[in-house]
């Protein structure tokens, strides 16, 4: 859907589009968000092991949730992609539960105000994080991706990669330390 030649909107544009959905129920803004996020969410769900039909169905659900929850989006707390990632992650878990006849986990009430620590994660830091992820070694990047794209616990990841659990853990810790320092945090 993204082959039209138009460049992908940047983080600030995406955040502004979500705000327009929140404040004006703007369906044009929603269309732009759908064009950007739905194919990525579908791709993410496919990597997480969902077959195409289910991934498509859940990707649509994620977009409906984005429409419903837009007013809870707080750009000072998280970037647009981070916020959509969290919705997609939870929708994936709920989908797996629904398949077993289980209800979704109710969302806890949102915090009253963003805390000082989370404020440091404003949208403009996404670029720094992106650069740091690109600079991770291939082994570290692979492990971080496996954590995000599978619902397997780390022991299963270790055996899938034929690595000792201790090696998996130390690669995770190294990768996280690098990402943290790229964000200017004390490792």
């Amino acid at each position: 859907m993204n082959q039209a030649g138009s460049p992908a909107p940047d983080a600030a544009t995406l955040a502004a589009l979500i705000r327009r959905v929140a404040t004006a129920r703007d369906k044009q803004a929603f269309a732009a968000l759908f064009k950007h996020f739905a194919p990525r969410v579908k791709s993410f769900l496919r990597r997480a092991g969902m077959e195409s039909g289910a991934a498509e169905e859940v990707a649509q659900e994620v977009m409906i949730l984005l429409w419903r929850k837009a007013e809870h989006f707080d750009p000072s707390r998280a970037g647009a992609a981070t916020w959509v990632f969290a919705i997609a992650r939870n929708a994936r878990i709920d989908h797996a539960r629904r398949a077993k006849g289980l209800p979704p986990q109710p969302e806890p009430e949102p915090e009253a105000a963003p805390s000082a620590e989370t404020l440091t994660l404003a949208a403009e830091q996404a670029a720094r994080l992106r650069g740091a992820i690109a600079e991770l070694g291939p082994e570290q990047k692979q492990i971080v991706q496996l954590f995000f794209f599978s619902d397997t616990p780390h022991a299963a990841i270790a055996s899938a990669l034929d690595l000792p659990l201790g090696t998996v853990k130390s690669r995770i810790r190294l990768a996280m330390a690098k990402l943290r320092s790229s964000l200017g945090e004390v490792p």
Partner: peptide, 21 residues
């Protein structure tokens, strides 16, 4: 909480990186 927010931001970047399907 701050570490989880950072990790979710990593998830957000992973999502942005996905080849659109």
């Amino acid at each position: 909480r701050a570490e989880i927010a950072r990790l979710e931001a990593v998830g957000g970047e992973m999502l942005e990186d996905m080849p659109p399907e």
